[in-house]
């Protein structure tokens, strides 16, 4: 009978209305949605970059015309480069110390079973789950109580503190993915424990340590809230930008930020390409 022939096949019958909407959504709307989301994410980046070319004069709020002067003279405005140098120095010291301390913790957590492992994990996790304003104010409370003068070194101490946890988590991820049999194989080939670690584990771990160091540096370089509590009179780049927000940020700040953006993007892209080349080679 014709009715039987024209009845839908089982597969078509199971396509309920929500499923058809879902399929359509999946193919079209999702793509459009992603475009809008990326526009939302990147619009302020584009704005910051564009306004580094603004012929701004006193205030960099309204577009006044294109100029290369800001890029040719990035230290032209007072305190921009001073605060940048402070941020870079703090970032480098904090990264070096936090990466060393965090890597050691990650090594013990992944490679040893010991009493207090769970509480160590908790102690690593807690600083990441505490709001920055609490981290910053509690450290300031300590410094005030001990009459420690605020400045460059109190910022360094604070940055090391909040970077350690992120280093531990990042290095742990890499360590956990390493095959322990590689080190055992080295020891079967008459390497002692230290040699096996130095010649097998450490080189394999290096990308994880590098990623952790980059993460620590970018966290330190961009931190404002904790820094603001513990910096005293010392200016870092984010603090300088925040403080000058109300009297007008010089376009040179946008130049510095755009340059940092380009450098970071270049580092990430090069790391991607190197990784791809290595996987192919």
């Amino acid at each position: 009978m014709s009715a039987v022939v024209e009845s839908p096949t089982p597969a078509q019958r199971t396509l309920s209305a929500p499923t058809r909407v879902w399929r359509w959504f999946g193919s079209n709307v999702l793509r459009l949605y992603a475009v809008i989301a990326f526009a939302y994410l990147l619009l302020p980046v584009v704005y910051t970059f564009a306004f580094s070319f603004n012929d701004a004069g006193k205030s960099n709020l309204v577009w006044r015309g294109f100029t290369l002067d800001n890029w040719l003279n990035p230290c032209g405005a007072p305190e921009v480069c001073g605060s940048l140098v402070n941020s870079l120095a703090i970032g480098l010291i904090a990264t070096a110390v936090a990466t060393a301390l965090g890597t050691l913790i990650a090594l013990s957590l992944v490679r040893y079973r010991f009493r207090g492992r769970a509480s160590t994990n908790l102690l690593i996790f807690l600083p990441m789950a505490t709001p920055e304003v609490v981290l910053g104010s509690s450290l300031l409370a300590l410094f005030l109580n001990l009459f420690v003068p605020l400045g460059f070194w109190t910022i360094v101490v604070a940055h090391i503190m909040f970077c350690i946890s992120f280093v531990v988590v990042t290095v742990k991820a890499r360590l956990a993915s390493l095959d322990p049999r590689l080190e055992q194989a080295a020891m079967d080939l008459y390497a002692n424990e230290r040699e096996a670690f130095r010649r097998i584990t450490l080189p394999l771990l290096a990308p994880g340590i590098a990623a952790a160091a980059l993460l620590a540096f970018s966290l330190s370089f961009d931190d404002f809230i904790i820094t603001n509590f513990n910096s005293g009179q010392v200016n870092t780049f984010p603090k300088f930008v925040y403080v000058s927000a109300n009297r007008g940020i010089p376009p040179q700040a946008n130049v510095i930020a755009s340059a940092m953006f380009i450098i970071s993007l270049a580092i990430v892209l090069i790391a991607q390409l190197v990784g791809r080349a290595r996987r192919k080679g």
Binding site: L42, P44, V45, T48, V241, A245, M260, L265, V268, L269
Partner: peptide, 21 residues
């Protein structure tokens, strides 16, 4: 990379960019 790209610009400056936008 595009998702994390905003992190490469100072977070204060991005917030101030929103103020302008």
């Amino acid at each position: 990379i595009m998702v994390i790209a905003p992190f490469f610009v100072s977070f204060i400056l991005r917030t101030i960019a929103w103020r302008q936008i």
